[in-house]
Design a protein around this nucleic acid. Structure first.
Lengths: 185, 185
DNA sequence: CGCAGCAGAGAACGCTCGTTCTCCCGCCGA
DNA sequence: TCGGCGGGAGAACGAGCGTTCTCTGCTGCG
């Protein structure tokens, strides 16, 4: 098996298991079993479990933000794009296997003990926040609104995870519409 | 040592250690060392670590909401009370040792593996949400605003934890003021 | 003063898990 | 065909930890 293929399978298994069950309850042997990549190979590719966690968060970050951007860019109207963030979140919340925000969960689990993991979380949230800020700026709306939309999105993710409902996405979208309307006056 | 005293010391130690370092990295022996309560006694009072975690979350829930209510009730104006939630959050965020929302962190760490812990988290968030909903209702504002304020609060907690800044409280407060103004028209 | 019983200290047990090591098979070049 | 070598399977090692057990000393009561 090619080295890049092995890396891909390892990351696939890591993502499936870490996201669903949390990092600490998944052992390297579980990763081996699901990925079919031997322990020896795993440790050649990722010298420690922590590195595998980092790589998992990093790859997921890229994919997650790409997927969001694809959704948002289906809309032309700049203001509509801001609200579209929550359409995408709502769709995500409703998917089977949705288990909250991988980065918030990882931060709760490892933020206090693993600086590399905490760093990945900060990077991801900073990138997401900046993306929202850009959407808001292109709609000609004030920068503060970017902060507000970002907080609504974070709150929606947490609330959807804990309650298992998709409703927070709709509520956050509604709040965003009201805030946009308020700024328009 | 009286049994109630021992319970109190155990919970004090649990709160200090679990909140700062997370649940999984703290051993029962650490609880013993900090509390001065012997392992034998600990297991008489809490037959398993999971029960201690539950009790920690439960006691913290009562205290956390009491403290919030005390702050909020210093204000007379019902609309001001809604915004005062974020004054209190901002103060909390700035305290040394602030490490995010204990329930969100615990959910990320144990939500997938421990149903009792997940239940405590749901109970706490439901209680907080209802408290906010009451504040909003007494201010004569529509129920949807309660949802919006709740999501802003959750987002602020998460964002403050990850960035280490108190700014999210001020941003959430500002968003809340805008939403209230929008509803007044 | 003597004894029963409780409580604490801490060793012990069993399990999990991250990480490494050993053994063996199959492939590839000479 | 033969030798070595890369890689896989899985045992092994060592640490951590939840939980229980043992021993010892103290206390309170007769």
């Amino acid at each position: 098996m090619d080295s890049t293929v092995a890396t891909g399978r390892a990351l696939d298994a890591a993502e499936e298991l870490f996201y669903r069950q949390g990092v600490q309850t998944v052992g390297m042997d579980d990763i081996r079993a699901v990925s079919g990549v031997s322990l020896k190979r795993l440790y050649q590719l990722f010298p420690a479990k922590e590195r595998l966690v980092e790589a998992y968060l990093e790859r997921r970050d890229v994919r997650w933000r790409e997927r969001l951007a694809e959704h948002v860019e289906q809309h032309e109207d700049p203001e509509r794009r801001v609200v579209a963030v929550f359409d995408q979140l709502g769709e995500w919340f409703g998917e089977p296997g949705f288990n909250g925000c991988a980065w918030i969960n990882s931060y709760g689990e490892l933020g206090a003990t693993s600086e590399p993991v905490a760093r990945q979380v900060r990077l991801h949230k900073a990138a997401f926040k900046e993306y929202v800020a850009n959407l808001v700026a292109r709609a000609g709306l004030p920068a503060d609104l970017g902060e507000h939309v970002f907080l609504l999105a974070e709150g929606a993710m947490v609330s959807a995870a804990i309650t298992g409902s998709t409703a927070p996405a709709a509520h956050a979208a509604e709040a965003t519409r009201l805030l946009i309307a308020a700024h328009r006056r």
